[in-house]
Design a protein around this nucleic acid. Structure first.
Length: 422
RNA sequence: GGAGAGGUGGGUGAGUGGCUGAAACCACCGGUUUGCUAAACCGGCAUGCCUGUCAAAGGGUAUCGGGGGUUCGAAUCCCCCCCUCUCCGCCA
C-alpha cells in the first residue's frame, strides 16, 4: 500500500497519477486524509492519558513505600477514571486504524511516469518484437493435438484423476518440463540469483503480505481446515521471507529464484482461450524476485527484463515485450513488462512472463525495510516470471513441429537428452 | 497424535511485581592509540506511533512469541493460542 505520509504530502499528484490507472475515487483519498487526522488526535489523547496514568502509578508506589496509605488510595480513584477513559480511547483508536488501513488497501499503486494511460490490453505499448514469426502452415497442429499425437501430455487423464486444468505430462513431455525448469534455474543462478525451494502452501499473513488477500481471494485455493493457501506463484512465499525484516543496505540487492508449482482457481475462465495448456489450475513456473534500493530499482527492472528476454532468445521463440498501459497494469504494480510468445498453430500471442516493479507498495504492506548509514527506509520489490512453463511448451510444440517430430531447441538438448519428440 | 521443557534486543544470556526499553558479553558502527594489522580504551548501537523541526535534537507512548486478564503498577502472576526443543507413537 501507499505510504500515508506520501498521500498527505502529495494529494494532487497522487490523484493525477492514479487517473492514469483509471482510478478516479478522490473521495477515498479525502477520507483517508481526514480519518488520519482523527487518528492522530485520538492517539494524542490516549498517549497523554497514559502518561498521566504512568506518573500516578509511580507516585502510588512511592506513597505506599512511605506508608502513606490514604493519600495513595485517593490517587487510585483518579487512576480508575483514567483507566476507563483509556479503554474507550484505545477502542476508538483501534477502530479508526483498522478502517484507515482498509481504505489504504483500496488505493492502487501509483504508476511509473513512463506508463501511458489506456483502457486495457489494446492500449499496451509494444516495445520490442524479436524473432521470426513462422510462416502460417495450414497443416500445423495446435499443441493439444500434438500432445496426444506424441503422447506427451494427457489432459483427459488429468480430468479423470483431478479435474479440468490439471494435465499429466508423460514420457518425453515430462522430461521436457524438467529440462525447462533446470534450464531456467541454471540461467538464473548464473545471473547471480540464489535458488530457493519454497513451501507450496502459505498462511494468511503471507497471503496478505503480497496482496493476494484480501483483493484476490477468489484466485487462490483455500485449505480451510488448516487455514492455508496453495500458492498462486512462488512470489508469495519468496517475498514473504522478508516480511517484517530490516535488511542491511549492503545486503541489497537480494536476488532470489524459485521453481514451484502454482495453483490458481481461475474462476470465470472459459472458452477457447483456455484450451490445452493455455490456462491451467496447476502449472510450473520459475520466478525471480529482487529486493532493491529505491534509487536502483528501475535499473534492476531492466536487468530482469533482459534476463527474461535472453531466455526466450535462447529458446528461439518469437516474442514481444509490452509495456502495460495504466488500464492493464495490476493493482500493485508501478510498471510492468509483459512477455508474449507467438504460437504458430493458434496464431496468437501467449503471455509467458510479467516483470514488475512494485516500488515500495508491497514493502510498505509487509514492512520490508533496509538500513544504511541514513534512516531506515522501505525497500523496493520486483519480480518476474522466468518463465512460466505451459505456454512456453505450447509455443515450442507448435512452432517446432516438423514432419519428423518436434525439434528441441539446442540449449535444452543437454537437459532433455534427446533432440526430437517423435 | 501423547508427555515434558522453553520462547527476552542482530547473537549468547541476566532479569519472579515498581528504580528494566531491559544487565553483562559478543557482533556491528564511530573515535583515540598505532609504521601496518591486532590488542587496549572511549562512545554509539531496536522498532512503530504521537509531538516537535526547514531538517534535527528533544519529549510522550507502545512493544520482552501473539491475544486477553489480574493490579495503582507486569518481561515478571493468571487464561487462551502459536512456535521451538526433548522423549514416545506414526511415517516418505
Amino acid at each position: 500500500m501507499l505510504q500515508l505520509s506520501y498521500i498527505q504530502e502529495n494529494k494532487e499528484e497522487v490523484l493525477r497519477k492514479l487517473a492514469i490507472k483509471n482510478f478516479h475515487n478522490s473521495d477515498l483519498i479525502h477520507d483517508i486524509i481526514s480519518l488520519d487526522q482523527k487518528r492522530k488526535e485520538t492517539q494524542k489523547s490516549l498517549d497523554d492519558n497514559l502518561a498521566r496514568a504512568n506518573s500516578l502509578a509511580k507516585e502510588v508506589g512511592k506513597l505506599f513505600k512511605e506508608g502513606r496509605r490514604e493519600e495513595a488510595n485517593a490517587i487510585k480513584e483518579e487512576t480508575a477514571n483514567l483507566k476507563h477513559d483509556n479503554k474507550e480511547l484505545a477502542g476508538a483508536l483501534e477502530i479508526i486504524s483498522k478502517e484507515l488501513n482498509e481504505l489504504l488497501l483500496d488505493v492502487p499503486n501509483i504508476p511509473h511516469e513512463s506508463v501511458k494511460a489506456g483502457k486495457g490490453e489494446e492500449d499496451n505499448e509494444i516495445l520490442v518484437e524479436e524473432g521470426k514469426i513462422p510462416a502460417t502452415d495450414e497443416k500445423a497442429l495446435p499443441h493439444w493435438e500434438l500432445a496426444s499425437k506424441y503422447k506427451i501430455i494427457d489432459f483427459k487423464l488429468g480430468s479423470k484423476v483431478t479435474g479440468a486444468g490439471f494435465p499429466f505430462y508423460r514420457g518425453k513431455g515430462a522430461k521436457l518440463q524438467r529440462a525447462l525448469i533446470s534450464f531456467f534455474l541454471d540461467e538464473a543462478i548464473a545471473s547471480g540469483y540464489e535458488e530457493f525451494q519454497p513451501p507450496l502452501f502459505v498462511n494468511e499473513d503471507s497471503a496478505y503480505g503480497t496482496g493476494q488477500l484480501p483483493d484476490k481471494e477468489g484466485q487462490m485455493y483455500h485449505i480451510g481446515e488448516d487455514r492455508l493457501y496453495p500458492i498462486p506463484t512462488a512470489e508469495v512465499p519468496i517475498t514473504n521471507i522478508y516480511r517484517d525484516v530490516i535488511l542491511k543496505e549492503d545486503e541489497l540487492p537480494v536476488k532470489n529464484v524459485a521453481y514451484s508449482s502454482c495453483f490458481r482457481r481461475e474462476a470465470g475462465s472459459y472458452g477457447k482461450d483456455v484450451r490445452g495448456l493455455n490456462r491451467l489450475h496447476q502449472f510450473d513456473k520459475v520466478e525471480i524476485v529482487q529486493i532493491q534500493h529505491p534509487e536502483r530499482s528501475y535499473e534492476t527492472l531492466e536487468e530482469m527484463k533482459d534476463h527474461a528476454a535472453g531466455l526466450l532468445k535462447k529458446l528461439g521463440l518469437p516474442y514481444r515485450i509490452l509495456r502495460l498501459c495504466g488500464g492493464d497494469l495490476s493493482f500493485t504494480s508501478a510498471l510492468t513488462y509483459d512477455f508474449e510468445v507467438y504460437s504458430a498453430a493458434q496464431k496468437r500471442w501467449l503471455e509467458v512472463s510479467s516483470v514488475s516493479n512494485f516500488e515500495n507498495y508491497q514493502a510498505n504492506r509487509m514492512k520490508l525495510r533496509f538500513k544504511g548509514k541514513g534512516k531506515t527506509q522501505l525497500a523496493h520489490t520486483l519480480n518476474g516470471s522466468a518463465l512460466a512453463l505451459p505456454r512456453i511448451v505450447a509455443a515450442l510444440l507448435e512452432n517446432n513441429q516438423t514432419e519428423k517430430g518436434i525439434e528441441i531447441p539446442e540449449v535444452l538438448v543437454p537437459y532433455t537428452g534427446f533432440e526430437v519428440i517423435d
